Computed example of a mutant assay.
Amino acid sequence: MKPHPLYLYALDPTHIGAGGYRMGRVDLTILRDAGTNLPKVPGSSISGATRSAAIHSLPEGDQQRAMDYARATISKKNKNHPHKGSQDPIASIFGYAEGGSDGGDDEAKGESRIGVVSFRDAEILAFPVPTMLGPRWVTTAHLLERAVCGNVPRPASEEQVIVQAGAAAPARLNLGWLLLSAAAKEIPFPKPAQGLPVFDHLKERLVVVHDNLFPAIVNSNLETRTSVSINFETGAAADTALFTYEATPRGTLFRGQIDLDDGRFPPEIITAAMPLLEKALTLACTLGLGGMTTRGFGRMQFALVK
């Protein structure tokens, strides 16, 4: 198994819905990790958007063939495929499950295979927060260590933050509504070989906070928007159609992982998968991940570490 860290930098606010209305301060909440209560981009969202974009990243001849196979796969009968999944350029990489040619017992004759690529959840690595010195990106020593950074300084207590050394460091720094003492130290930060230009900008403005404070800072600085459905006959707002929803703000840096299964698949499939995966990620991140992409949500820049 070859792991490839995936960094996603949000160019727009991101809304990955939790699947319905909830009782609380907003109607449409975003998906959170059950253990940390922090927003994340689930691997299923990245996988689905990337697989869809991969079809449109193929040459024209293969593209139509892959679209025909995809339409047959999502049909209710799920058995009138134009060709086998092993012969499809997308299904052979992302996996497939096919029904039998007839109903009844023949359904057991369908073929299925796992994908060559596996998508892991992308968790927040650095989160933008307004301060009296402009925006700063908040993280923790634990998150940086998981991103393979060594010698990460840790705050002495919850009342202290570590700011990046080099510039004139303030004695105290506010993070939204919190005012904490600050200490200047060198903070390591990952920089992929084919990374994002914004990595240097983020490193200069990095702030390490205590692990106990990080969830409260993130959840209190999420973006909350209000929208209303439009009555298309009058062009005005529809009655009783006001709703609110959450989003992670633009500038959030996520870190996930994509695995290529080189243990169960031949090298030629692995070799063909990586270029297509990069093209598909480029298109998927341009079109946007998550919901409300036509309202200006979801665009990303990505860096895939090979």
Rank of each mutant, 00 (worst) to 15 (best):
M1N: 11
M1A: 14
K2N: 14
P3Y: 04
P5C: 03
L6M: 00
P13V: 00
I16H: 04
G24N: 05
R25F: 13
V26W: 01
D27V: 02
L31C: 00
G35F: 13
G35S: 11
V41D: 03
V41C: 11
P42S: 01
I46F: 10
S47V: 04
A49E: 07
A54T: 04
I55L: 12
I55C: 12
I55A: 13
H56W: 15
S57H: 07
L58D: 07
L58K: 09
G61Q: 13
D62R: 10
Q63I: 02
M67G: 03
D68T: 12
Y69G: 01
A70P: 14
T73H: 13
I74D: 07
I74G: 03
K76S: 09
K76V: 08
K79R: 14
P82S: 03
P82W: 06
H83T: 04
H83V: 04
G85N: 01
Q87W: 07
P89H: 01
A91W: 12
F94N: 04
D102W: 09
G104Y: 10
D105H: 08
D105V: 09
D106R: 10
A108G: 09
R113I: 00
V116D: 01
V117R: 02
S118R: 12
F119M: 09
R120Y: 15
D121V: 09
D121Y: 13
A122L: 08
E123R: 15
A126Q: 07
F127W: 08
P128I: 05
M132F: 04
L133D: 02
P135R: 00
W137S: 03
A141R: 05
R146L: 11
A147G: 06
C149K: 03
N151Q: 11
P153D: 13
P153H: 15
P153F: 14
P155F: 13
V163S: 12
P170D: 14
P170H: 14
L180K: 08
K185T: 01
E186S: 10
P188N: 01
P190Q: 02
L196G: 02
F199L: 02
H201N: 06
V207I: 13
V209A: 11
H210L: 07
H210C: 09
H210K: 10
D211S: 12
L213I: 10
N221V: 03
E223N: 10
S227M: 06
S227P: 01
I230T: 09
F232N: 07
E233D: 12
A241Q: 06
L242I: 09
L242F: 09
Y245K: 06
P249S: 07
L253K: 08
F254I: 04
I258M: 00
I258H: 00
D261N: 03
G263W: 01
F265V: 00
F265P: 01
P275S: 06
K279W: 08
A280N: 12
L281N: 14
L281V: 11
T282N: 14
T282S: 12
L283E: 04
L287W: 07
L289K: 02
G291H: 06
M292H: 15
F297V: 03
F297Y: 15
F302P: 03
V305I: 08
K306G: 13
